[in-house]
């Protein structure tokens, strides 16, 4: 009875994969063992039939196109620079624009103005403490002498003028506060973004054309 180990060895023997000594031993056994010789013949015939199988010519060329393998045209070394500049310019543009748009609603320096100047630039909230200060000033000036009612009114008006900043100044401060980034800077960012985007497009198109 031929065991599987022998069959394995016979198959390897056919392919010349046995060592010289193993081949010799197998040859001696084959001469005396008819069953082993029959198995070898079976394996050999199966092997030769497979080898005789006609080789087909491939029905088409399998050559690849750049599209098939997802290759992109090689871009010049300056391309990443343009890309970086465009990205940063766009980010700054969005940031500066947003900050400027939000500045009327958010007070950046209100506390300083409120305590120092009477809340000129602080908007409505900052103006309140200034108004509260007014009676204090009046209280301070009261004990010095006892002026008449008219004098008192005049003085109070004057002191009011002193504590409250002029309307024009107030408005100016508001305007300064609104534009955190100057419009020139925003235009510059916008220009860089547009030029960068156009340059990237042109570079890509040129690379594509050259590649094709």
């Amino acid at each position: 009875m031929t065991n599987f180990r022998d069959i394995e060895n016979l198959s390897a023997y056919l392919d010349g994969q046995l060592s010289e000594s193993e081949s010799k031993r197998l040859k001696i056994r084959l001469e005396s063992d008819a069953e082993l010789a029959s198995v070898l013949s079976d394996l050999s015939s199966a092997r030769s039939i497979l080898k005789a199988l006609p080789k087909r010519k491939s029905p088409k060329n399998f050559t690849l196109t750049r599209k098939m393998v997802g290759l992109k045209p090689p871009l010049p070394r300056t391309y990443p620079l343009f890309r970086l500049a465009t990205i940063f310019a766009t980010l700054f543009l969005v940031f500066s624009f947003s900050v400027n748009a939000l500045s009327p609603y958010v007070s950046f320096s209100a506390p300083q103005f409120a305590f120092g100047y009477g809340g000129g630039g602080g908007g409505d909230g900052a103006a309140a403490p200034a108004a509260e200060e007014q009676p204090m000033t009046m209280m301070e000036s009261a004990p010095a002498e006892e002026p008449s009612a008219d004098q008192a009114t005049e003085e109070s008006l004057e002191s009011q003028k002193m504590t409250e900043p002029p309307v024009e100044e107030q408005r100016q401060a508001e305007v300064t506060n609104e534009a955190v980034f100057s419009s020139n800077l925003i235009y510059a960012f916008l220009l860089i973004s547009i030029i960068g985007a156009i340059s990237m497009y042109v570079i890509r198109q040129n690379a594509k054309r050259k590649w094709q």
Binding site: S11, A12, D42, L43, S45, A46, I49
Partner: peptide, 16 residues
Amino acid sequence: IKSRLARARLRLRECL
């Protein structure tokens, strides 16, 4: 490989 090839050849022989 050696073992699979031997088994495959035997089965093919039987089938053929």
